[in-house]
């Protein structure tokens, strides 16, 4: 019901309009969203994630408190704005979602088939544990500057390959990510599109997790990448795959220095 109240309020607000703090239509629309919703429903997800993070779970009955997100076991503050990053223990560049799954498996003993690992995205009726934990960990970087590390050669190669993927046109409609995210002030139907060249805009845009009003649930960066490949009519990108992380690495690098809003609220 909260969802419907929110939509109704936002609709009313969009008619009224308001003073623009920025000349970016992407941000202006979003600012109105924020003004109208004092409480982001993603906070409920964040609180549930906090409980799940600290709760002993899985076959080994341990919490995720010893999970290392790159700054040492249990260090959450600022960890997410410094991802994706290269992890020695896996030999991979990983994003936050993949890293949580890694810890669910290695620390807690969950397998690929167990619901906390298998359920990657939330539905109308069921919020994924992964999304909740992701929201909690990400929120510990709220307000910080995006600052993905580029010290390891694989981090740099992953970002650079992500840039190639971002500009790579293919598929039935000849689209690439760049088709929607290069020219400022453009929209698809009524949705304004963020561009990489506007740091303020892009920093907000990549701020996942976000409660998506149109979906009525919290969504993740992996969900966004999947949606983009789907709309481009290219092949389905797999959750946590190296290509998906390359895209995340490039898009986070493009927001470097910009402020993260975690969790965010989006249309």
């Amino acid at each position: 019901m909260f969802k419907h109240v929110l939509i109704a309020t936002a609709l009313a607000g969009s008619v009224v309009g308001g003073a623009a703090a920025s000349d970016s239509p992407y941000l202006t629309g979003r600012e109105q969203l924020m003004m109208l919703a004092d409480d982001n429903p993603a906070e409920l997800t964040e609180w549930r994630g906090e409980d799940l993070y600290h709760e002993p779970r899985g076959p080994r009955n341990v919490s995720l408190e010893q999970c290392d997100f790159g700054l040492g076991p249990g260090v959450l503050e600022g960890a997410y704005v410094q991802m994706p990053r290269y992890f020695e223990d896996t030999g991979r560049v990983m994003d936050l979602e993949s890293r949580i799954i890694h810890c669910m498996k290695t620390l807690q003993g969950f397998t690929e088939e167990d619901d906390p690992v298998a359920r990657k995205h939330s539905s109308d009726t069921r919020e994924a544990d992964l999304v909740a934990i992701y929201t909690y960990v990400a929120a510990q970087s709220n307000g910080m500057a995006w600052n993905p590390p580029m010290d390891h050669p694989m981090e740099r190669l992953t970002r650079d390959a992500g840039e190639v993927l971002f500009h790579r046109r293919a598929g039935s409609m000849d689209f690439g990510c760049v088709s929607c995210h290069s020219e400022p002030r453009k929209r698809i139907r009524l949705s304004f599109l963020p561009v990489t060249s506007n740091q303020e805009e892009w920093s907000k845009a990549i701020s996942w997790p976000a409660y998506r009003i149109g979906h009525g649930v919290v969504r993740s960066s992996q969900h966004r990448v999947r949606g983009c490949y789907y709309q481009m009519r290219q092949a389905g990108v797999k959750f946590g795959s190296d290509a998906s992380i390359a895209i995340l690495s490039y898009w986070t690098d493009q927001a470097r220095g910009g402020e993260a809003t975690l969790p965010d609220l989006k249309r």
Binding site: P153, M154, V164, Q234, G236
Partner: peptide, 25 residues
């Protein structure tokens, strides 16, 4: 050695060989 690949070569690897996409669909 991946780090000897160019970004373009690695991007190609990511698309076609890394099991990142459901290519068989």
């Amino acid at each position: 050695d991946f780090t000897k690949m160019s970004p373009e070569e690695y991007a190609d690897y990511l698309i076609f060989e890394s099991d990142s996409f459901n290519l068989a669909q």
